[in-house]
Amino acid sequence: MEFDITPPADCRTMAEVRAGVDSLDRLLVELLAERFRYMDAASRIKTERGAVRDEGRKAQVLANVADHARELGVPIDLVTDLWERLIEGSIAYELARFDGAPAAQD
């Protein structure tokens, strides 16, 4: 990934650090928005509400992110905790979409 920000190793001021963090936060939210568009697609494709929760797939996603966190040297417990919450939120979102509810805005 290439960003128009000062790389962490080159930061010399807290302003540079904060600008980098703010830029990455914007990108993360954009990526989350794209991920939720996949949840919209899933709720459109699945024919049964019971198919929304898939514990096998959840375990696979958690294992994948744990492996990736390990490879990148970031805290595995933190990453898997974040993804646990993201997955559960995604399931709730998908169930609401499956049921015809509009997407939550808060």
Rank of each mutant, 00 (worst) to 15 (best):
M1H: 10
M1V: 12
E2Y: 10
E2S: 14
E2P: 07
F3I: 13
D4F: 09
D4N: 15
T6D: 08
P8E: 09
D10S: 13
D10P: 04
D10L: 13
D10C: 08
C11D: 08
C11P: 02
C11A: 13
M14V: 12
M14E: 14
A15G: 09
A15V: 13
E16S: 07
V17Y: 02
R18I: 13
R18M: 15
R18H: 14
A19P: 03
G20I: 06
G20H: 02
V21E: 11
D22P: 01
S23D: 14
D25V: 14
R26F: 15
R26D: 14
R26L: 15
L27D: 12
L28K: 14
L28Y: 15
V29Y: 15
E30K: 11
E30A: 14
L31I: 12
L31D: 15
L31C: 12
L32I: 12
A33L: 11
E34P: 01
E34D: 13
R35K: 13
F36H: 09
F36W: 13
R37N: 11
Y38C: 10
Y38Q: 07
M39Q: 11
D40Y: 03
A42P: 01
A42W: 02
R44S: 12
R44I: 12
I45L: 14
I45Q: 07
I45Y: 05
K46S: 05
E48L: 11
E48A: 14
E48M: 12
E48C: 10
G50Y: 00
A51V: 08
A51Y: 06
R53E: 08
E55R: 04
K58Q: 08
K58S: 07
K58I: 12
K58G: 01
A59C: 02
A59N: 07
A59I: 04
Q60N: 09
V61W: 01
L62T: 03
L62G: 01
A63K: 06
A63P: 06
A63R: 09
V65M: 00
V65L: 01
A66K: 03
D67G: 11
D67R: 11
H68E: 12
A69H: 04
A69N: 08
R70W: 08
R70A: 09
E71D: 10
E71H: 08
L72C: 08
L72Y: 02
V74L: 03
P75Y: 02
P75T: 04
D77T: 07
L78E: 10
T80C: 08
T80F: 01
D81N: 05
D81T: 12
D81Y: 06
D81W: 04
L82G: 01
L82T: 10
W83L: 07
W83I: 10
W83N: 06
E84F: 03
E84H: 07
L86T: 04
I87W: 05
E88W: 06
E88F: 05
G89S: 05
S90Y: 00
S90L: 03
S90D: 08
S90F: 01
A92M: 03
A92R: 02
A92D: 07
Y93Q: 04
Y93S: 03
L95K: 00
A96M: 03
R97C: 00
R97D: 01
F98R: 02
F98C: 03
D99M: 00
D99T: 02
D99N: 08
G100T: 05
G100D: 04
A101C: 10
A103Q: 09
A103W: 01
Q105A: 05
Q105V: 09
D106Y: 08
